[in-house]
């Protein structure tokens, strides 16, 4: 199952981010010659709001959380995570803080950053922290915050997107504005991305 930019945008829509695709693209596209004189404060000028290290960590967590068959994960995370924290500084700080704490635990227990560990160790570390059974709580102890800001955030991104939904058999999952055609349709080959009940507005 290939995750695409469209899935990230779908997940963002579900998450309430009001960010257009072009804006997101601007964050990662290499600067072009004709964008050199962009006005201060414009998209081309803006700094990415999340560091590469943080995106590495989110991707490393997502590799543990997402089914093995999912591909295109890194791009999905980059677009989703960035768009998602746009205009929500408190939430972004919560993600950063939880990530920093997870990294600190990884260094304490395994002597390396979380993203540098192998997938099996990363999985085990989360389970040993009790994150599997933790109650997500943005103000709780670190385990609950990791569950809230990292685990649930990334699971929400995946399973509220058409791509994540399709893995389970629903191309228009709750949270995704997939229009009012899909509910009328019988079982179809929903692995076809063109049958995803895409947003009726395009």
């Amino acid at each position: 199952m290939e995750l695409t930019r469209r899935d990230a945008l779908g997940a963002l829509a579900a998450a309430g981010a009001t960010v257009g695709g072009a804006v997101l693209a601007g964050r990662f596209d290499p600067p072009r010659a004709d964008s050199g004189d962009a006005a201060p404060g414009s998209v081309a000028d803006a700094d990415p709001s999340l560091s590469t290290e943080l995106l590495d960590l989110l991707d490393a967590v997502a590799e543990v959380l997402y089914p093995a068959a999912v591909t295109g994960r890194r791009e999905f995370i980059e677009e989703y995570a960035l768009g998602r924290t746009e205009g929500r500084p408190a939430y972004r700080d919560g993600v950063r803080e939880a990530a920093a704490q997870l990294d600190a635990v990884a260094r304490d227990w395994h002597g390396d950053s979380y993203a540098a560990l192998d997938a099996e160790t990363r999985d085990r570390l989360l389970r040993r922290l009790g994150v599997e059974t933790a109650d997500p709580d943005p103000d709780g102890p670190i385990t609950d915050r990791i569950r809230f800001y990292l685990v649930d955030d990334l699971l929400f991104a995946l399973y509220a997107s058409p791509a994540g939904g399709r893995l389970v058999g629903i191309e228009n999952p709750i949270g995704h504005p997939g229009g009012i055609e899909s509910y009328q349709r019988g079982p179809v080959n929903i692995d076809d991305p063109d049958s995803d009940g895409g947003n009726p507005n395009g």
Binding site: L65, Y66, E132, F156, Y159
Partner: peptide, 21 residues
């Protein structure tokens, strides 16, 4: 709903996907 169940699940990865399916 799969997304809501996923957020309440006590596992992840392929095991979670199996549970949701």
């Amino acid at each position: 709903s799969p997304v809501i169940e996923a957020l309440h699940a006590e596992t992840w990865g392929d095991e979670l996907l199996d549970q949701l399916r």
